[in-house]
């Protein structure tokens, strides 16, 4: 059993004050833990559940419903490549294949050096400038295999 940091706990407790039912802060608690730890381990989830006052099962139900709550370790940078129809029409497949080959991983995989995790995402709202992807918090669009190489180089 691990304890969350004081910062995490305070942040979660603040979120709990914003709802009539403190349990409604479950999703925020998971985001906070992920923000501090990169992903949500079983132990961290149980610790967060204790702070929020829900059972670990209740928290797990929320955590596993949202695919951007990571319940497995991820790389330093998480690449989310849009696989929706607009990006599909303008070259998603080449970008996808290039990413997979360059990184040597499939969707859901993490490079051996722990640098990148590759995930699909449905629509980043960047349809007019596809193909699009997110690396961490940053958007990259009008992707080509060449642009992808340049972008990856920016993330050590």
């Amino acid at each position: 059993m691990i304890e969350l940091s004081q910062t995490e706990i305070e942040h979660i407790q603040h979120e709990m004050t914003l709802y009539e039912d403190p349990g409604a802060a479950t999703i925020e608690a998971l985001k906070i833990v992920q923000e501090h730890r990169g992903w949500v381990s079983d132990e961290a989830m149980e610790a967060a559940a204790k702070v929020v006052g829900v059972t670990p099962t209740q928290m797990e139900a929320v955590a596993t419903f949202y695919n951007l709550i990571f319940r497995q370790p991820v790389g330093r940078h998480v690449i989310m490549l849009c696989d929706s129809i607009s990006c599909y029409l303008v070259g998603y497949e080449q970008v996808r294949d290039h990413l997979k080959t360059t990184l040597g991983i499939d969707f859901g995989g993490t490079t051996e050096d722990g640098r990148f995790t590759l995930l699909p995402i449905c629509c980043l709202g960047d349809c007019d400038r596809g193909p699009a992807m997110r690396v961490g918090e940053v958007y990259h669009d009008q992707l080509t295999p060449e642009r992808v190489d340049a972008i990856l180089a920016e993330y050590p």
């Binding site: 829900v54 059972t55 670990p56 099962t57 596993t64 419903f65």
Partner: peptide, 14 residues
């Protein structure tokens, strides 16, 4: 009961 829930989503509900 608080310790049985639908976990996961879409075709992977558990």
């Amino acid at each position: 009961g608080d310790d049985l829930r639908a976990l996961g989503s879409h075709n992977n509900v558990y």
